[in-house]
Design a protein around this nucleic acid. Structure first.
Lengths: 221, 221
DNA sequence: TAACTATTCAATAAAACAATTGAATATTTG
DNA sequence: CAAATATTCAATTGTTTTATTGAATAGTTA
């Protein structure tokens, strides 16, 4: 049988291994969560609403395709994305999905209508205004996610502690809140809380990886 | 039941629709071929070694996820990628697969060992040498693929016509051949033919989309 | 060492998928 | 209008995949 054909078949078989990882909604959610920082199996189970056994199984699939890696820490097994490029690839997938599938666009806009008059600020404008000291960037993700990577200049106040720490925010400046990315609602909730306290606030749709891609694509010279 | 949970489930369901398209080797091969230019169903069937019915089925899956589009032309249905970004996404997938899966690296290097002493030229060096007029870039894909997009400055001689048209090549310059990309072997075969005729030649691994990405990432200023 | 916790393993049942076949449709050509 | 061609449809089969359950393992703490 044709040599070249079998070679191609094997090659595409391999590409499809990565593809198979992306064919389950739950696995995609796991990859997104791990993109924000390492997590244990039952942390992931709680965040996704899956059973632990189920999560473990999915993680092994991802592991076999080298998209995640793990190490043992005491009783826990901590999973992490295998490479930064995996997170970047997830951004590509989100972008493509949003561009091609109206359903994604619909879902996104529909949820933001629930969160009143939320015109998001763009990355470019945000960075300019931060330079001029006009706004404060607020990272509302859990502390450990902030610790494993955040947009430079952002301060960290996890969602649950936001109401307690309102005082520590500069009263005169506008607040821009961000979280895990375009499909995470924490920042939207944060903005609502801030607004309800009379603080001027807006939402940054992008997360760390979207930011990273932005600076890489715009700062070449 | 939790509002946010159902929203996320729907959203990731949609992302996974794109993922499912990428979970079959044959569908990936179809996407790669269509990235090079529009093709009819049985053209694709011949190129991939599948039955026509099977190809048609896969194409419909891809169509439902808006990764390809089609129009009727006489008796034929011509399929095409829906967006340039689909081709770019495929490049991302290839890159990620090659980075994470040793199997892909192995398959790639093993086939290039069959093609004698084939040190490929890099894009950067190629473009410089083209500017200086030291090399001629040769596109060995079928004419219509060249017509629907090629690296600027390249001349088109489809693989099958190469031996006939050897005379039309400048005798004093080195030839660099390219084809559909890193996983297409036409350019390697072309180089072998050229070398056997005593013409100095080397292979460019990259195809049109890899080139496009290269210039977009390096020419920002 | 015993109890406890986090994770994985193994077996199962239900659902989704892929390849195959032959028939049906639509368009073109003689 | 009949024959030919390209594609799609529909039904079938065998294979993979997913979620679920309960048991097994490995490491920790009392």
């Amino acid at each position: 049988m044709n040599m070249e054909r079998t070679w191609k078949d094997q090659l595409y078989q391999e590409f499809a291994r990565i593809g198979k990882c992306l064919s389950s909604p739950k696995r995609l959610e796991l990859l997104d969560l791990l993109s924000q920082g390492p997590k244990s199996v039952d942390q992931l189970a709680k965040l996704t609403g899956m059973t632990v056994a189920n999560v473990s199984q999915h993680l092994q699939t991802l592991h076999e395709s080298r998209l995640v890696r793990s190490h043992k820490q005491g009783n826990f097994v901590i999973y992490d994305i295998a490479e930064l490029s995996v997170a970047d690839f997830m951004v590509s997938l989100h972008r493509l999905s949003e561009k091609q599938l109206v359903e994604v666009q619909k879902l996104k806009s529909e949820i933001l209508l629930n969160h009143v008059s939320m015109e998001p600020i763009g990355l470019e404008r945000l960075l300019k205004r931060m330079e001029r000291g006009e706004v404060v960037l607020l990272d509302v993700r859990p502390e450990d996610e902030y610790a494993s990577g955040h947009i430079p200049g952002a301060i960290s106040i996890p969602m649950e502690e936001l109401e307690k720490h309102l005082a520590s925010l500069p009263a005169d400046k506008e607040i821009v809140a961000y979280c895990r990315g375009p499909y995470c609602l924490m920042s939207a909730q944060a903005v609502e809380i801030l607004k309800s306290k009379g603080i001027k606030a807006s939402r940054l749709e992008e997360g760390v990886h979207e930011w990273k891609r932005f600076v890489e694509h715009s700062s070449k010279f």
